[in-house]
Every structure is written in structure tokens, then in C-alpha cells.
Design a binder for these strands. Structure first.
Length: 601
RNA sequence: GCCCUCGUAGCUCAGUUGGAUAGAGCGAUCGCCUCCUAAGCGGUAGGUCACAGGUUCAAUUCCUGUCGAGGGCACCA
């Protein structure tokens, strides 16, 4: 519908040029907007004002010429020039009504398009370290990423969803060691658990599996394990009055302590047994993450292993390419990447003085690989705490001669839970966090998905648990779902009353839809494809949630003002066609959000 | 100290990629079921778009500065 009007404007512009009435170097893409106020018609364009600037003509004169050159169309009843030079289009009621059969015929395809033209887009999201279950912060990234991916797919992009598995590095060693220490406790060893270890219950569970399957085979005496290990800092169990962890104790250091324990674990267990515990921890947690995301309706095409980058030589290849380009130098025994040459604030280490490559080195290789896989566009969705990381990744891509503009990093702010108006505290290391699974069980998938994407991603999200659970109009999820269920209910009522409902898209008698509420609902309905398009291109799912509330509101208002199941069969049929179209838009929109559209509530 | 994001109604937030008289929801308040689910609908009140400059036909939107909030500044991942 919008495109039809755009075409009219383009036609008028080319007509003016060919008649010599317009002297512009190049024609702008006509900017057409929905009007805020129906007094200004249905659509408005500002081309006359934009062109006036380029051609030094008076905007209203130009607008006048443009209006005269517009081809006639049955869609438009009236065109007027307003304000400084807006051209307002008033659409025929029939133009709106004609959308009903189109919507019904399109069915679940309504709102989908091909503007992405099959371009390949990779969306990488969540990618949480497999050191513990997903918590509610990851949940927001999961919901946001999944909806952005689905939106892009809906408008014709070829989308590849990926999870980057950080299955290497020190954090995983800490997890492995934490599991082993818990296992030793299960064997009957008495030890002081490191303050920097992972303390969650899931660590006990993995340790219990190890103990159940292998008995004491991995056991070593506590004295042997802790021999020569530097002092720990204060325990994480010890808190000050405000509940914050105490600072490092004098003479103790939690980092050197845990590193000492990791070394002890590797030494005492030997390669094979250490590897076994490591894999047990990794796989148990990864399975849990997969299961959780799958239960949340989030599926991936690929789980990409960080370790595979090292093993395949990709990391070394990336470093060699940087070296060949003259972007590396040695300092204090480490190998540095001169990222400042590409706008980063300081240079970064890629190989440590102990010979190990850094996480950053893996990430360079990973992003190089992403671009080499031929994606037209790569989208990374990160937690906002990683924002400082963007310049160095882009710097690396530039240094490698890749097009850094193909990479977009979208940052998602944290979600803060509120229960009874009080903030729910969270700390990963201390094992005090609400998991995504707990949240899903508490409020349900539908409310979780909807609430997570309700706000712009760079906005902090206050997640009100009580509101998400409330079954009332205060709760936006129920409000939208209820509109859908109400349409279904009307149809059930019709059946009970023996009123036949014509299931075909049918085009008859729509002219009977003359009420203001019907026009308002129709106007909203025709906006749906435009909303999906901008929500997808701008990666802003909240536009869709916002829209669905408005659409639901238009429906509820109509429902209250008019009876659908009237005696007049012709009018009844027209009204049912309209609310069926509304149901289709509600269902499709909820579907894109990963929220169910219930038949009754 | 430097960097990023944010600052819009009492609260939580939109604002269609610079447009016309800045909008929802909640809360407050006044109404609406003999009627397809009241899990709903309507009315009223509520604003110096943090502040000061700048860019232009036009700024809540873009730029600069100030103030305030949150986050980030590792040879961790």
C-alpha cells in the first residue's frame, strides 16, 4: 500500500523532469510517512521541501507542480499541500478495505517480504561461557537475538544463527578445578573451597556424577592438592554488613591461589584424567544450555567451538597474517597488536609472555573466519559490558584488510529483576543468580519473550516479575494474546449460534464496513508489513511489541463499540472478515516474537 | 581521568530513521456489562522533551559543551 503511493510520487517526479519543470541532478528516493494525525491524511511526503533546497525553488510551488503531475489512482481520493510544503495523501476507504482479502489470502505470509533479497546474514548471540547455567541476563540476549534473526528471515534475508562456545581458556580451567574440588569433598576430603571457584549447586551435581561413575579414582589427599599453593584471599562466603564480598586478605590473593590449584589438578590428574573432568563439566553445562535455549524456542544453525580455532591452526594463521602486514611487535616477552593504528585506545596482547595466545587472538581468528565464510553481513549481539571490545575487533579486521563495516555489534543492556518492587540481587561467581530456566518456569516463555524485547536493547530493562505473571490488562502479553483469543471466541460463538462463517478470503460486501472503529482497525492492519520491515532493518523488536499493543487496542475498542454477530448476514460476514484479518496480523506478529497465540484464555 | 549508553508525564517507556498540536501503559480520578470473555472500553487531570549553545525551511531527534544515572577501561574469558 505504501509502495503504491511511493510509485505515484516517483512517476510524478520523472514526469516533471522530462517536461523540464524540474532541474535536479538526481531524484531523491521519495520519503513517505504515515501521518500522526488523520487530519493530515494517511500518508505525507516531504520531497517538495527536500527538492526545494536542492533547486532553490519555493517548496509550496514545487509541491503544487508535483501534485499536478501525479498520475490518477483509485487509491487516492484527495491530495493537499499543507504547512511549509508537505504533500498529504488521503486514501479511499476502499483502498483499505481491499487489503482484507489480500491479508486473508496471504495468511501466515502476511507481513513477510523479500527486501533482504536472500543476502546472507549471520547473527551470533548469547555465546555465554559454558561455566554455568544461563541466567536472566543471557535470557535477554537470547530473546533479542532470536527475534532479530527471525525478523531478518521474515523480510527475506538468509539467516545463520550461531553460538560461539568459549570452550578454552582459564575460566574453563577454573570450572574444571571447581568440579574436581567438590568431587574431593564428596570423597570425604576436608578442604577450603577457593573464593574464586564456581560455587553454584550445578558444580556439586557434576562432581556427584563423577563420583558416582568413578568412585575414588580421581581422589588425591587434600594436603597433596594444596601443597605449595599460594594463600587464598578472604572467602567469598564472608561478607560485610551490606552483603558485599570482602577484599583480598593481607598476604592472600585469589588469582594466584586458583592458578595454583589448576596447576595442581593438571599435575596430579595427568592429561587424560584432567581432560575427562574438563569435558564432563563442559558437556554437562553445554547440554543444559542447549536444552534451556531450545525450551525457550531459540535454535541455532551452528555451535562454533573456540577450541577448534586453535586446533585447526586458524589462530596462528590470523597472527601470521597480522605479522605479515607489519601490525605486530614484541614487548616484555609478549606479542602485541598495534590496534591504536586503527583507532583503538591502546595496543593489545595476542600472545602472552608464557607463549599462550589470548582470548582476543581467538576472537580475531573467529571474526576473520566469519567474513571468510562469505556472509554479507555479520551481527554480533553482546552484553553491554563488552562494549570496550568493539574497537579492537574492528581494528583487527581492518588490519587484516577485511571490510570491518560488514560487522555490526549490537549491545544489550542488563535486565534487572524486580519482585514486590524490590531488586533481585545477582552475582554469578557466588552462585547467587536467577537462571533463565527459573524465570521461564516462573513467568512462562510467552511473558519472558515478550518482556525481554519490549524495550530498546540499549535501554536498561526493569523486568517486573509480578507484572509478567499477572493475568490482567496491565500485562501487555495478555492484552495482545487476549485480542487473539477474543477473535477465536467470536468464531466459536458464531458456530454455536449456527451462523455460517465463510472461510474463503472472499471480497464481497466489504463496503459495509463504514464505522470509524473499522477504519481505524484497518489503518493499523495495513501498517503491519511496514512495522516488520523497520523492526527488522533497525534490529528493533520493540517496535513490533509496541505495534501489537496498538493493534490489540484497536481491536478491543472495536469489540466494545460494535457487535460482530449481527442478524444482518452480509454485514456480519464483512465484520468477521475484518477481525479474521486482525487475528492473522496478531498471530503472525506474536509468532515473530516467539510468543504463542492462544485460541482461548 | 578516558570511552560507551541513557536522561521525555508521579512511575515504566514509545516517538515511524530531522517534520505539522510530543504519545501509550501503569498510578490518580469519573464513567461503561439484559449484549460475541469486564483478562475489555471510554472521559478527565498530568510536559520548560536534563541544561546551554550551534547546524536549517524545520531539532525530542544531528553537532559541541555542562550536569546527572548506569556500564566499561587485563599478558581474564
Amino acid at each position: 500500500m505504501k509502495q503504491d503511493i511511493k510509485d505515484l510520487i516517483s512517476a510524478a517526479l520523472t514526469a516533471l523532469v522530462s517536461r523540464g519543470q524540474l532541474d535536479a541532478p538526481e531524484l531523491p528516493e521519495p520519503m513517505l510517512e504515515r501521518t500522526r494525525d488523520t487530519a493530515h491524511g494517511d500518508f505525507a511526503t516531504n520531497v517538495a521541501m527536500v527538492l526545494a533546497k536542492l533547486t532553490r525553488a519555493k517548496p509550496r510551488d514545487l509541491a503544487q507542480r508535483l501534485v499536478e503531475a501525479l498520475p490518477s489512482s483509485s487509491l487516492v481520493t484527495r491530495v493537499e499541500i499543507a504547512g511549509p510544503g508537505f504533500i498529504n495523501f488521503f486514501l479511499a476507504d476502499d483502498a483499505y478495505r481491499a487489503e482484507i482479502p489480500r491479508i486473508l489470502a496471504a495468511g501466515h505470509e502476511f507481513g513477510r517480504s523479500r527486501i533482504g533479497a536472500g543476502q546472507r546474514v549471520q547473527v551470533e548471540f548469547v555465546s555465554a561461557n559454558p561455566t554455568g547455567p544461563l541466567h536472566v541476563g543471557h535470557g535477554r540476549g537470547a530473546a533479542y537475538g532470536a527475534v532479530v534473526a527471525d525478523l531478518l528471515a521474515a523480510v527475506g534475508f538468509n539467516v545463520h544463527r550461531e553460538y560461539y562456545v568459549n570452550d578454552a581458556g582459564r575460566q574453563m580451567d577454573i570450572l574444571c578445578t571447581s568440579v574436581w574440588l567438590r568431587y574431593l569433598e564428596l570423597c570425604g576430603e576436608d578442604l577450603r573451597f577457593p573464593s574464586n571457584g564456581y560455587r553454584g549447586d550445578y558444580v556439586w551435581d557434576i562432581a556427584a556424577t563423577l563420583h558416582r561413575e568413578h568412585g575414588d579414582a580421581y581422589r588425591h589427599p587434600t594436603e597433596e592438592v594444596f601443597a605449595g599453593v599460594p594463600e587464598d584471599a578472604a572467602s567469598a562466603d564472608e561478607r560485610d554488613e551490606e552483603g558485599n564480598p570482602l577484599p583480598d586478605a593481607p598476604g592472600g590473593d585469589k588469582e594466584t591461589h586458583i592458578d595454583g590449584l589448576i596447576a595442581a589438578a593438571k599435575h596430579l590428574l595427568g592429561d587424560n584424567r584432567y581432560r575427562y573432568v574438563f569435558e564432563l563439566g563442559l558437556n554437562t553445562i553445554l547440554d543444559d544450555i542447549r536444552d534451556d535455549l531450545s525450551g525457550f524456542g531459540v535454535e541455532y544453525q551452528e555451535w562454533y567451538s573456540e577450541r577448534s580455532l586453535t586446533e585447526s591452526g586458524a589462530v596462528n594463521k590470523a597472527i601470521e597474517r597480522l605479522r605479515a602486514g607489519g601490525h605486530l611487535y614484541e614487548l616484555n616477552g609478549a606479542l602485541w597488536f598495534r590496534s591504536t593504528a586503527f583507532g583503538d585506545e591502546k595496543d593489545r596482547v595476542v600472545v602472552r609472555d608464557n607463549g599462550q595466545t589470548t582470548y582476543f587472538a581467538s576472537d580475531i581468528a573467529y571474526h576473520m573466519d566469519k567474513l571468510e565464510r562469505g556472509f554479507d553481513r555479520v551481527i554480533d549481539i553482546w552484553g553491554a559490558d563488552h562494549h570496550g571490545y568493539i574497537p579492537r575487533v574492528k581494528a583487527a579486521l581492518q588490519a587484516l584488510g577485511d571490510d570491518a563495516d560488514r560487522l555490526d555489534v549490537l549491545l544489550v543492556q542488563f535486565a534487572i529483576l524486580y519482585r514486590d518492587g524490590v531488586k533481585v540481587p545477582m552475582s554469578t561467581r557466588a552462585g547467587e543468580f536467577v537462571t533463565l530456566r527459573e524465570l521461564r518456569h516462573e513467568v512462562g516463555n510467552d511473558a519472558a519473550r515478550f518482556f525481554y524485547v519490549m524495550r530498546r536493547c540499549e535501554q536498561h530493562l526493569d523486568f517486573d516479575l509480578d507484572l509478567a505473571k499477572s493475568e490482567s490488562s496491565d500485562n501487555p502479553v495478555y492484552y495482545v494474546q487476549y485480542a487473539h483469543a477474543r477473535v477465536c471466541s467470536v468464531l466459536r460463538q458464531a458456530a454455536e449460534k449456527g451462523m455460517a462463517v465463510d472461510p474463503s478470503p472472499g471480497v464481497t460486501n466489504l463496503e459495509r464496513l463504514v464505522e470509524d472503529h473499522e477504519q481505524a482497525l484497518l489503518r493499523s492492519l495495513t501498517r503491519y508489513p511496514e512495522v516488520v520491515e523497520t523492526a527488522a532493518l533497525k534490529a528493533e523488536p520493540h517496535q513490533l511489541t509496541q505495534y501489537l499493543r496498538e493493534l490489540a487496542n484497536d481491536f478491543h475498542t472495536y469489540y466494545n463499540a460494535h457487535q460482530f454477530l449481527v442478524e444482518d448476514a452480509v454485514l456480519r460476514d464483512a465484520r468477521i472478515k475484518l477481525i479474521l484479518a486482525a487475528r492473522q496480523a496478531l498471530r503472525n506478529g506474536l509468532g515473530l516474537l516467539g510468543v504463542s497465540a492462544p485460541e482461548n484464555m
